[in-house]
């Protein structure tokens, strides 16, 4: 549970961490290719573990434990001391590490990197979600009433 209401800085950071985590590895690698060689110290090498996922009984009631998921985390520090963190579902060490580097870089220069890394990744995700949604929407039932007899 969050220990406090998130600050605006945390909200912005959570927003880009979300995009970095949701994006496919290939897309992240393509968008962040100029930054893969950024000099950094590894605070926590990529490590895969488990997070227990939870549901709510009756969809909106009290929580229950549903089952676990694999998650890989990583933490890095740039030369100027900025720390970057990543928690990404799955077992890709490369994804977690590049996401952590991007998180650090974004804290240093949010304006520029949001444009070069986050915006294209977000656009890709939006496009994929929109495509899936229009395909689902095509399966929506249009009920019509049969006219029975004409007495």
């Amino acid at each position: 549970m969050p220990s406090h209401a998130p600050t605006s800085g945390e909200t912005a950071r959570a927003a880009w961490m979300r995009i970095l985590a949701l994006s496919a590895w290939g897309d992240l690698e393509a968008c962040a290719k100029d930054y893969t060689d950024t000099a950094h110290d590894v605070l926590r090498p990529p490590e895969t573990g488990l997070v227990m996922l939870r549901g709510r009984m009756g969809a909106s009631g009290a929580a229950f434990n549903l089952g676990e998921a694999t998650v890989t985390r990583c933490a890095v520090r740039l030369g100027d001391g900025t720390e970057g963190h990543a928690y990404v579902m799955g077992r890709s060490a490369a994804h977690a590490k590049l996401a952590a580097i991007c998180d650090a870089l974004l804290q240093r220069d949010a304006q520029r990197l949001s444009e070069t890394i986050i915006a294209p990744l977000a656009a890709k995700l939006d496009a994929e979600q929109a495509e899936a949604s229009t395909k689902a929407a095509a399966t929506k039932v249009d009920f019509f009433t049969m006219v029975r007899g004409d007495d």
Binding site: P2, P6, R13, A14, L22, M89
Partner: peptide
């Protein structure tokens, strides 16, 4: 659905991925 998790070292929730689920009420 997206999965949110609060890492201890961050102290605020972040989305770490998305999963497919089936729900029945």
């Amino acid at each position: 659905v997206e999965v949110s998790f609060t890492p201890e070292e961050l102290g605020f929730p972040i989305v770490i991925g998305a999963i497919a689920v089936t729900e029945c009420e």
